[in-house]
Amino acid sequence: MRGPRVYDRLFEQVLVRMDAEQAHHLTYQALQRGGPVLTRTARLAGTPVVAMGLRFPNRLGLAAGFDKTAQVWDRMPAFGFGHVEIGTVTALAQPGNPQPRLFRLPADRAIVNRRGFNNDGAVAVAERLAARRHRPGAMVLGINIGKSKVVPDDDQAAVEADYEVSAKLLAPLADYLVVNVSSPNTPGLRNLQAVERLAPLLAHVRRVADAAAPDRPGGPVPLLVKIAPDLADDDVLAVADMALDLGLAGIIATNTTIARDGLRSPSSTVEGCGAGGLSGAPLRERATEVVRLLRARVGDELTLIGVGGIDTPDDARERVEAGADLVQVYSGLIYGGPAWPRRVAQQL
């Protein structure tokens, strides 16, 4: 237990005093510099599982949001991750929202972010992935795509054309592809979760992805949709029915929440963070409930990836018991440190 205690002290005495996004960039730069060593020394933990026709080395993945520019994804197996989801990637490169835009709530083991899909764009990401493709069987690579901010959400044709650019470029490079319509940090994006808007968008992305990778071994790239925890139960079930009707591979539940209920942090601290999506431990109960609702609805026909509020190995097991085939983490890594993912993977 020496490692976790050392990281706890480092976090409490050093990292928590730094701007959260600065700390993220320093970590990212360290991973870039340490790439050759990390890729050679990767030792995957846990038990393999098959989902969506893919063999995952274990159930644990790194959620979208950590590697938005596709530069460190292949370092992450060294920490125990069996899959990594890069992104969110948009068709157009964009800087995201003004800084500061990433905040910690240590009393709640939570994060508030309003980064707004800051990324280098689909062309740059596709070029990086094509130049450094992962070794088959070593890990699974998911690619999460979203709407460019300048595209009006009320123009369905423009939205579909925007997602089409990303799908065409990235589907041939992905083990699975995710359509993100659930971030609260791109204006109007969550409006696309309404089934009457979402179904034609997903059908269009499906056609584009299939055409972009017609000779993919194993068949069409699995397509998933990522939903928000703030959907009403009836809307969660409507998305489940739609996913079945469209023949999607699965659903990722859930993204960050706009709710701020039941937090331990002082209200002044929470208000000081401003708008954005809340992730971390406070999300656990609702994210688990959404997975449970989905599994009861879809049976064994869809892969469910549980994400949100996984802070301990017990949380990860709870999500699997609720019906998740795979789990993903991000905020738990920030609070748990580099040795934490391996402990979670080993205990799943």
Results as ranks from 00 to 15, higher is better:
Leu141Tyr: 11
Val165Phe: 09
Tyr7Ile: 12
Leu60Asn: 07
Val225Leu: 03
Ser268Pro: 08
Val270Arg: 07
Arg132Phe: 01
Arg133His: 10
Gly146Thr: 10
Gly82Cys: 07
Thr288Phe: 09
Gln13Trp: 12
Gly274Pro: 09
Arg59Ala: 14
Leu333Cys: 07
Gly3Trp: 14
Pro338Met: 12
Ala171Glu: 00
Leu248Met: 03
Tyr176Glu: 04
Leu333Ser: 04
Val181Cys: 14
Leu26Pro: 05
Pro341Met: 11
Val221Leu: 13
Trp340Gln: 03
Ile334Arg: 00
Ala316Thr: 12
Ser182Glu: 08
Gln346Ser: 15
Asp234Phe: 06
Ala161Trp: 00
Asn113Tyr: 03
Val236Leu: 09
Val236Asp: 00
Asn144His: 11
Gly137Cys: 07
Phe81Lys: 06
Ile310Phe: 00
Tyr28Trp: 15
Thr256Pro: 04
Asp175Pro: 09
Asn180Met: 14
Gly323Ser: 10
Val6Thr: 14
Gly121Trp: 00
Ala232Tyr: 10
Ile305Asp: 06
Thr269His: 11
Asn97Trp: 01
Ala23Ile: 06
Ala212Gln: 12
Ala30Thr: 13
Val291Ser: 07
Asn144Ile: 07
Leu92Cys: 09
Leu326Val: 00
Ala345Ile: 02
Ala107Lys: 06
Val221His: 12
Leu44Lys: 10
Gly116Thr: 04
Leu129Arg: 10
Ala122Lys: 02
Pro95Val: 00
Leu54Thr: 03
Arg342Gly: 05
Pro229Ile: 07
Gly61Leu: 12
Asp234Glu: 15
Arg342Met: 05
Ala199Thr: 07
Gln71Val: 13
Leu15Gln: 10
Thr288Gln: 11
Val291Asp: 08
Asn118Glu: 14
Asn118Lys: 05
Leu248Asn: 08
Pro172Gly: 07
Ala124Glu: 15
Ala296Glu: 11
Ile310His: 02
Ala51Ile: 02
Ile111Arg: 05
Ala45Phe: 07
Val6Trp: 14
Gly250Ala: 06
Gly277Gln: 07
Pro214Ser: 13
Asn58Trp: 09
Val150Asn: 14
Leu224Asn: 04
Glu285Pro: 01
Tyr330Ala: 02
Val205Asp: 00
Gly3Ile: 13
Gly34Gln: 03
Asp74Met: 04
Pro95Cys: 14
Arg75Val: 12
Asp261Arg: 15
Glu301Asp: 15
Arg292Tyr: 11
Arg43His: 13
Asn113Pro: 02
Gly280Asp: 06
Phe103His: 11
Asp230Arg: 07
His25Ala: 13
Gly142Asp: 12
Gly34Asn: 04
Asp300Lys: 08
Phe11Asp: 03
Asp162Phe: 04
Arg128Gly: 06
Thr39Ile: 14
Asp234Tyr: 08
Arg207Asp: 12
Gly299Phe: 05
Leu10Gln: 03
Pro200Arg: 07
Ala23His: 07
Arg33Tyr: 10
Gly121Tyr: 01
Glu301Tyr: 05
Ala339Ile: 10
Asp314Glu: 15
Thr41Gly: 13
Val270Pro: 02
Leu348Ser: 03
Ala324Glu: 05
Val181Gln: 04
Leu54Ala: 04
Arg59Val: 08
Leu192Lys: 09
Gly61Cys: 00
Thr256Leu: 01
Met52Asn: 08
Leu10Trp: 14
Ile143Met: 08
Leu304Cys: 06
Val236Glu: 11
Val205Glu: 00
Leu302His: 12
